[in-house]
């Protein structure tokens, strides 16, 4: 019991490490550029984080269930391209549900492979990252996709609209976060996600259908990706085939940064939202400091490493240990 207390103290220190680092970032950014803390800038950060954030909400379910989803970036490209193409062919009313159905089928396929066939999620979704990219390019013939009549469609409301002065992407992100937060924290399904990720065998021994739970997590993740694709398509009304490329790592960074363990069984939607915002503020801060946009790819990597390290450190109560 005594060692445990020590562990807990170490754990709290390690957890706060990320907040302390964040506070230092904010301080440096604010000193470097006072605009950083302005209301306009804060709003713009949240707005530009919305797409990433919506995807991170879904991936949170997958990660808590003890799996990974590295396919969300290329899946988002797929959703964007498909909805833009269908927009002009069958109209937005039908295009949106059709795109959701197709994207969720991809999620269901991954869920089948990982949940029912018990294949390793890293390999499955890494493979799907490439396969879906191929699918998107085949679909589009490698061409950029544009809506013909950009002025005359109401479709732009999801990415460009605002209600009560709040941009719609933020409203969607907030609404979805609230909904999924409640699903995860308050429903029986949410409880099962934690149980399956915490100890899949024990969950099975308690009569929980593990495969079905994992399957559902991937379908939820795909639905979130479809929503992100909708916002993306609606914002730009035209897109390249690679619009979501690399987002899978940023999403994962946000989820881990929020404190979800890659081993599964822990994390919350609220924490993921915090993770998304931290990531957004750091990237914004780097831009305001005049650094090139591309620096953020390196920074994202550093953040992932830092977050994983602190996660492990929190578990063993030390920053470094010769034994696991």
């Amino acid at each position: 019991m005594a060692t445990l207390t020590k562990k807990q103290i170490g754990g709290v220190l390690a957890r706060q490490g990320i907040l302390i680092a964040f506070a230092v970032f904010i301080l440096v950014f604010t000193i470097a550029n006072p605009k950083f803390l302005s209301v306009d800038n804060l709003f713009s950060v949240v707005r530009s984080s919305a797409i990433l954030g919506v995807m991170a909400l879904g991936v949170t379910f997958v990660v808590i269930s003890g799996n990974l989803d590295l396919s969300v970036g290329s899946m988002m490209s797929f959703s964007t391209i498909v909805v833009l193409d269908l927009h002009d062919q069958i109209g937005p009313f039908l295009a949106i549900p059709a795109m959701f159905a197709m994207t969720m089928c991809l999620g269901a396929f991954i869920g089948f492979l990982v949940g029912y066939l018990r294949l390793n999620s890293l390999i499955v979704t890494l493979g799907m990252l490439s396969a879906i990219h191929g699918l998107t390019l085949t679909y589009s013939g490698g061409q950029n996709m544009d809506i013909a009549d950009k002025e005359g469609t109401w479709f732009s409301v999801f990415g460009q609209g605002a209600a009560l002065g709040i941009p719609v992407p933020i409203l969607i992100f907030a609404g979805l976060a609230a909904l999924l937060g409640i699903v995860l924290a308050k429903t029986a399904f949410g409880r099962k996600v934690y149980a399956v990720g915490g100890n899949g065998t024990a969950a099975t021994f308690s009569g929980i259908k593990r495969a079905r739970t994992v399957f559902t997590c991937y379908v939820i993740s795909a639905a979130c990706v479809a929503t992100a694709g909708l916002i993306q398509a609606s914002r730009s009304l035209g897109s390249q085939n690679t619009v979501g490329q690399g987002l899978e790592l940023e999403v994962l960074a946000a989820v881990i940064l929020g404190g979800a363990s890659l081993l599964g069984g822990s994390g919350t939607i609220f924490k993921t939202v915090i993770g998304v915002l931290i990531l957004g503020f750091i990237q914004n801060g780097l831009l305001l400091m005049g650094l090139q946009f591309y620096v953020q790819f390196v920074v994202t990597w550093v953040i992932i490493i830092l977050a994983v390290w602190l996660d492990i450190a929190a578990k063993r109560g030390k920053l470094w240990s010769p034994i696991a």
Partner: peptide
Amino acid sequence: KGQGLVLGMNCRDNMTLPQVDDLKAGPFV
């Protein structure tokens, strides 16, 4: 530890795990 319990979960949630579907208040647990 391997089959009986989800060690990272709290006592209550472990105990009610097999019947979590049945303990409903509206849509919630």
